[in-house]
Structures are given as C-alpha cells and as structure tokens.
Amino acid sequence: MTLRFAIKRDGTPVLSVTRRDGTVAWQRQSFFFPLHDLTHYAVETVLGLRQAFWGMMADGWEFADFGTPWPRGPMPNLPEALLAEVIAGWFDTTRASGAEPEAADLNPHVAQVFAQHGLPAPRAVTDDEFARICALRADLAARWHALAPGEAMELAFTVGDGGRRDDQRL
C-alpha cells in the first residue's frame, strides 16, 4: 500500500492511501494527524504489526471507519490495534509535553492501558525496537516538516514486512 502525505497549496494536510487493488482512500487532516499517522507508520513497521491502523487500511477500511459510530463494528484483533494506538498516543502526549520519550516509561504505560481494558499486557517493546521507532519517527517528522505547500512524500507500507520501507519525496 502506498501512503501519500501531502500539503495542498493552501497549506492543508491531506493523506491518501492507494491499496494493492487500486482503491484509494483519502482524508483532509488537521495539523495534528500527519505526525500521529507517521508515528503509527513507525510503530507498525518496526513492530511488524499486521492488524493495526495501517494493516486495516490495507484491508479496505476507510478513515471514517475508525470512529463513532464505528460503521464496520469493533476493530479486529483488538490487542494489536490497541498496542499501536497506545504507543502512538504515548508519543503524541510526550511530544506535546516537550519531554524526550524514554524507553523505560513506555512499557509500564502500555501495560496500564491494557489492564484498564481487561487485557493482559502485550510483549514488551525492546530497547532496540524503541530506538528504531524513535529514529524512524524523527526522520519522518523532519521530512514532513520540510515539505512545502504543493509537495508530498510517499511511503510504502507492506504489512508484516518487519520494518522494510521504501519512500520518496515528490
């Protein structure tokens, strides 16, 4: 699947995905969502998650399916989707606070959120995985911030590929 993060000439962020079958989904975004969605990309590629946000988009979900009234019903494989969302949200909160993300803080936070949902804690994110997520996230954020109106960057998302990525700036 190809993800295209673009900035329209008027400065509005737009995200589109082109699936293997040629179908396209797109969304105008607020200025919060590009970094959140790029964080999802970093988390899901490094951890090799199949049924989190980008995997579901690859399977045909639409952006509007991820909110009330949940037109497609509950997300499949909730623990994997929850893991990606909790980690991406944790990075968002950390970024908003101005603090540097610390590996030692992530796994206890994830375990606490899973417990609140009545789920066992997932496997811990290793220090190596954490470092790779941070590095990829920082690279993507810098590239996003470097885009001018009318420019875009594309990322290839291959579910379950263990973090392989091909990307380019247009």
Rank of each mutant, 00 (worst) to 15 (best):
V110A: 05
D105K: 13
S30E: 11
L119E: 04
S30A: 12
F63S: 03
T126Q: 02
A42Y: 06
Q116P: 00
T68G: 03
D128F: 03
W70A: 08
R132P: 02
V17E: 11
R50S: 13
E100F: 06
D92F: 10
H109E: 05
D105N: 12
G73N: 10
E80G: 10
G67H: 07
E100D: 04
A58V: 12
T18I: 10
F5I: 04
R72M: 08
L49N: 02
S97D: 07
R19W: 07
P120Y: 00
P71K: 01
P13Y: 13
A81I: 06
A115L: 10
M56Q: 15
D127V: 12
W61D: 08
L38Y: 12
H36D: 03
R95T: 13
P108C: 09
D21N: 15
Q27R: 14
H40S: 03
T126L: 04
D65C: 10
P120V: 00
H109N: 09
D65Y: 03
A84I: 10
L47I: 08
A115C: 05
A52V: 08
A6F: 02
D10S: 14
A121S: 12
D37G: 10
Q51V: 06
A64C: 01
L78A: 11
T18P: 02
S97G: 11
A124I: 06
G22R: 03
L49M: 05
T39L: 07
K8P: 09
N77C: 10
W26R: 14
F114R: 03
S97C: 05
D59M: 11
W54T: 11
I87N: 00
S97P: 00
P120C: 05
V43A: 02
F31V: 14
D21R: 11
R20K: 06
F91H: 08
D128Q: 02
Q51P: 00
R9D: 12
L119G: 05
A88P: 14
G22N: 07
W61E: 01
A58P: 00
P76N: 07
V24Y: 06
V43T: 12
G11K: 12
S16A: 15
